[in-house]
Design a protein around this nucleic acid. Sequence first.
RNA 1: GGCCCCAUCGUCUAGCCUGGUCUAGGACGUAUGGUUCUCAGCCAUAAGACACCGGUUCAAAUCCGGUUGGGGCUACCA
Length: 425
Amino acid sequence: MARVRFAPSPTGYLHIGSARTALFNWLYAHRYGGAYILRIEDTDKVRSEKRFLEEIMESLKWLGLDWDEEPIKQSERFDIYRKAAEDLVNKGKAYREGEAYIFKVDKGRSVEIDDMIHGKITFNTDDIKDQVMIKSDGSPAYNFCCVIDDAFLKITHIIRGDDHVSNTPKQVLFYEALGIMPPKFGHMPLIMGQDGSKLSKRDGGTAVEEYRREGFLPEALVNYLLLLGWSPGGDREIMPLDEAVKAFDINHMKGVQAKFDIQKLRWMNGEYIMAKKAEALMPLIKKQFLASGKAVPEDNILLKVAELYKARIKTLSEFITLTDCFFGDDYAIDEKGREKHLSSAESKTILSEFADRLEKTGDFAHKTIEDACRIMAEEKKMKAGTIIHPTRMAISGKTQGAGLFEMMEILGKDKVIERMRKAAS
RNA sequence: GGCCCCAUCGUCUAGCCUGGUCUAGGACGUAUGGUUCUCAGCCAUAAGACACCGGUUCAAAUCCGGUUGGGGCUACCA
């Protein structure tokens, strides 16, 4: 029975790298059957804030990485840490220096770690200073309370970032002094930015919340993170969480740092959006409208537009900018496109003639509209595109978009003719 | 500086553990062509990598050593 944990510090939002750590811990627990526990490392009372904790938990839930037991908070366990430190002083393994409790490190020996990802790593204790357990202000030092809590929670496997490898021998020394068998460790390399330095805003953002706001789907973000440092061993790219659980094998984790590539994340997000039914996309798109302060469109129109556009968006936020012409008259206009397709007298003539013909049509189904367009093109001996481009520009303000006739059908006869007449005048 | 981790296309990676099947496979991105009213999508094609040096071996991307390069840690932060 494996017991793993994710131990965030509520001093900021959930970092994308932390999300990956959480993901692999979650995967480990679900793959091998066990518990995935949340521990709140809020020993720094000044920097820890409730709003950050709430946000971190919300982001984890959004990603689908729910924890199994009631989370524990280190800020409520200071007495336990002090008691453990006092025991070590009484056993002669530590000493006091003022108010602080300090652990004596045996020099001249080696500490070996059999890392699940890196293999054997050997350290010499000559490189390790005596370790503070309890600071002068009474709060515990990270490495000490980490060990006390991991032992208390009976953690069997610690999967965390490479930034902790040098903490590991210090922690192993604590386990030895406490007479407790250390858990297995697995350190995964950190995620880097495009230029190889720390992940930053330029790379697309560091907080999970930013990606959520931008309209990334949690499934896509998780899938992308999954493939950063781990691979199922073949050519699979799209792999949802439930399948990842079955295929997960920590031995396939790479010991190499990976660069975060927003382009591939965008592609993957597009794949997930495309794969969803328009109906399933509706609530997500509505939330996006709400979040951007725009009125939520009517269901029946939104559904049709979603159907038409889901293959051409990479994020939900793009949906809003791309489809503004369907949901009001104050849509954005591509000035270069207007210059190209609507400035000439010829294009205005074409527009008004096409509008005349459309007025006479019985229904306003896209097939009917297309027929009217093709017939006009044939009679005038022009290419259909000569009519289509100015019309698209006139009704949507854009040179790109879904099929023109489908767009026109959704907009409706009155609106289409109104916009065409306006552009022709 | 010291200690530690790492090194396959621009990026994510398969292959490495258990040398030969690798003239190194896939995906993203890029370029070109096809489909089409544009864009997206879809389809096809192309360019593009074993960091370097040495060793072991009949044979090395794969094993060993070194060099270079990148990263982490080096706090009474977590």
